[in-house]
């Protein structure tokens, strides 16, 4: 499980890779939040290399989006595989955090 945070001209990009299961979320949640929250910028989260997600992963994304929202910044996700998307939709996370098909669409969504 890895987290890579980069800056795309004022938009934070967080690339997650691996399994967002209980053990891995415990391991990466603090670096994920520390990498994006202090910037207070609109954020796009790349899920294309995420192979599994369960409730703690959903909670991590929800927490990040909520904290950014309180700072006036938006968080959107993109690149979810069908299996990841089913879990995101089952928890209704996708009702409040948009999931876009591509990085370009995600950046357009937060920049618009």
């Amino acid at each position: 499980m890895s987290v890579v945070i980069t800056d795309l001209s004022g938009v934070t990009k967080a690339e997650l890779a691996g399994r967002l299961d209980t053990s891995n979320v415990n391991r990466v949640e603090s670096s994920f939040l520390a990498g994006i929250v202090p910037k207070g910028q609109h954020t796009v989260v790349d899920l294309s290399q995420v192979t599994f997600i369960a409730s703690l992963g959903i909670r991590m994304l929800l927490s990040a989006a909520r904290v950014l929202s309180r700072q006036g910044a938006r968080l959107v996700m993109y690149g979810a595989s069908p299996g990841i998307m089913e879990i995101i939709e089952t928890t209704a996370l996708s009702d409040i955090i948009p999931v876009l098909p591509s990085e370009a669409a995600a950046i357009a969504a937060v920049s618009g």
């Binding site: 909520r66 209704a92 009702d95 409040i96 955090i97």
Partner: peptide, 10 residues
């Protein structure tokens, strides 16, 4: 059930 980020329970 929730419709906003603030309403969502963790």
């Amino acid at each position: 059930p929730f419709s906003t980020l603030e309403e969502a329970e963790l």
